[in-house]
């Protein structure tokens, strides 16, 4: 009996050592940096090619989830919710020839792209939904990115528990992909507050964490290094890859 206990306790110690070892390796910067190099390889090899598969409307997921961060509680956003997003304005600034601010009526006039696609979460699950809205590539032509422009940054109304603002970014190739859109509708209805309304980004060729919800403003930049954590997005600043095609 004592011997069985001894064996069991030494096994438990050995197992606890496993986690300690992998944790230490993960936190050892040279190793962590080294394994991070795979992202550039994935970006180069996979990149942004082809189109996400299109589904029929009968395949739309019932009980559509509201995953990710909770709906913003900030006063600025909540007052928009109260007036049904009537006072929503989307400013586009930065390295553009024609900085402009759009209201929902203007955006709706540009909404020519409706597509039923699969939304692949980094966590592993998928849902199928129908998103309608403005093709981002066409939208950017209106504001004319300058020659030095490289990235489009999407700032969200949302903030985490620590008050850090949510944001994300795409390069101009990803932004100009014909399926990348500023979505205004979900499954035939105007996007509600829980699903990222009134405007969310939707890029079906990448994992869903790139599809910024509750877009507050758009900025075109040549580098995202000076913005917040400098990795090009809230999730990127929290360890996820900027390139999310895999």
């Amino acid at each position: 009996m004592k011997r069985a206990l001894f064996v069991a306790s030494s096994m438990a110690t050995a197992l606890a050592g496993c986690a300690k070892a992998t944790n230490a390796l993960n936190e050892w910067k040279p190793a962590h940096d080294l394994v991070g190099t795979a992202q550039a390889l994935n970006h180069a090899v996979i990149g942004t090619r082809g189109n996400a598969r299109l589904y029929s409307d009968s395949e739309i997921t019932q009980d559509f989830p509201t995953n990710g961060l909770p709906t913003p509680t900030q006063a600025a956003y909540q007052s928009l919710v109260r007036d049904g997003f009537a006072s929503y304005r989307l400013p586009v600034t930065g390295l553009v020839e024609r900085p402009q601010t759009f209201d929902l009526r203007q955006l709706r006039a540009l909404a020519t792209l409706s597509q039923t696609t699969r939304h692949d979460c980094v966590e592993g699950w998928s849902v199928v939904g129908k998103w309608g809205g403005v093709p981002l590539g066409e939208f950017l032509k209106l504001v004319k990115p300058k020659r030095e422009a490289r990235y489009v940054v999407f700032y969200s109304f949302d903030h985490d528990d620590q008050g850090t603002q949510f944001y994300g970014s795409l390069d101009l190739v990803q932004a100009a992909h014909p399926q990348t859109q500023l979505a205004l509708d979900l499954n035939g209805k105007p996007m509600d507050a829980d699903h990222g309304g009134p405007v969310r980004l939707r890029i079906p060729t990448q994992l869903a964490y790139k599809s910024t919800k509750w877009v507050q403003r758009i900025e075109v930049v040549d580098t995202f290094k000076p913005i917040f954590g400098g990795k090009g997005g809230y999730w990127e600043d929290n360890g996820y890859e900027w390139y999310a095609g895999i």
């Binding site: 496993c18 986690a19 944790n23 394994v35 966590e123 999730w235 360890g239």
Partner: peptide, 16 residues
């Protein structure tokens, strides 16, 4: 890998 729950870093090691 790693021992604690961390999807981002799990993916990092997995892809490398």
């Amino acid at each position: 890998f790693p021992g604690y729950q961390d999807l981002a870093d799990g993916r990092r090691w997995h892809f490398f």
